[in-house]
């Protein structure tokens, strides 16, 4: 029993210390709705056409920013997840007779972390959960009276 309590105490301390070290302090930016960035190859024949598309898209619900660059021919939209890139493509196609396609950027060269960044970001939450669970288990053990189990 002592060994179990010691292990649980150790797990609780390690998990809560890890959570305290990894957790991020509060910032007002956390309250903002997340955005997605999507680039479209709009093949505009004239820059004015591209700028007009960017201006129209800027007014759509869910689009937080739009930008057209005549040098690249790309229209980039910052939008919330309430609209999908496919929806935006359809809406752009209505506005222009030119082909519209989503720009896929080439994979950057070099090695990348095999663990997705989103998974790493959940680590503090898991540590806090594990810390609370082991602390609760420790409390239950402490409350329980030593002796033979009832089924013996």
């Amino acid at each position: 029993m002592k060994k179990t309590r010691f292990i649980l105490s150790l797990i609780t301390m390690l998990c809560l210390a890890g959570w305290a070290w990894l957790r991020k302090p509060y910032s007002p930016s956390q309250e903002l709705e997340p955005i997605v960035l999507t680039a479209f190859d709009i093949h505009a024949d004239r820059p004015a056409g591209g700028y007009a598309l960017a201006e129209a898209a800027a007014g759509w619900r869910g689009v937080t920013a739009s930008s057209y660059n005549p040098a690249s021919g790309l229209l980039a939209l910052a939008h919330t997840s309430s609209v999908t890139p496919r929806d935006l493509t359809s809406r752009l196609k209505v506005l222009t007779p030119r082909p519209v396609s989503i720009k896929v950027f080439p994979e950057p060269a070099g090695t990348s972390c095999p663990v997705p960044a989103a998974a790493l970001a959940t680590l503090p939450g898991w540590l806090l959960g594990a810390g609370i669970f082991s602390a609760a288990s420790l409390a239950l053990l402490a409350l329980g009276r030593p002796g033979k189990p009832v089924w013996q």
């Binding site: 960035l37 680039a39 920013a65 930008s67 660059n69 690249s72 790309l74 980039a76 910052a78």
Partner: peptide
């Protein structure tokens, strides 16, 4: 920042 990021993504 959203406008800046859109500008960056459109800037080849």
């Amino acid at each position: 920042v959203d406008k800046f990021l859109a500008n960056v993504v459109a800037d080849d």
